[in-house]
Design a binder for these strands. Sequence first.
DNA 1: GCCAACGTTGGC
DNA 2: GCCAACGTTGGC
Length: 154
Amino acid sequence: MRYWLMKSEPTDVSIDDLAGFPNQTVDWYGIRNYQARNFMRDQMKVGDGVFFYHSNCAVPGIAGIAEVCKLAYPDRLQFIKGHKYFDEKATPENPRWLNVDVKLVRKTRLLSLKELREYEALTNMRILQRGNRLSITPVDPKEWEFILGKLNAE
DNA sequence: GCCAACGTTGGC
DNA sequence: GCCAACGTTGGC
């Protein structure tokens, strides 16, 4: 069992959107970065823990907890001509992009990026490193437990 | 809206 | 295979 942090722009899919979806589940579409894709393809298993992170918004930070509920499979948007996520080099026989499905566990208080930066225990967290842009990053089990503690504390 | 950092593309 | 140009991410 692994832990992950997955970024979503709340104008696209917010934690409240996720809570309102059927089965409180979303297909994590639109990943067009090989490193992030490979995490989904090679490492993510059903039941893995996910911090649902709001990015590119007024107060970025962790907005809830989710879990992987379906293994990686081809991202359907890569085949839709004219779509933002269309990829002409991808075919159903040889898809290039994948996504897992993610299900809400619970909404939490918003643990802001600013607050994350305040904790000594999290200084090595991927998301906090300079220049980090990767939208899916592994979370160390110790970091996961530490953050859970902070989320449960208030 | 700015811009630093990073990833990708494509000419050579 | 190098690397300049370009595009994207995402905090601020």
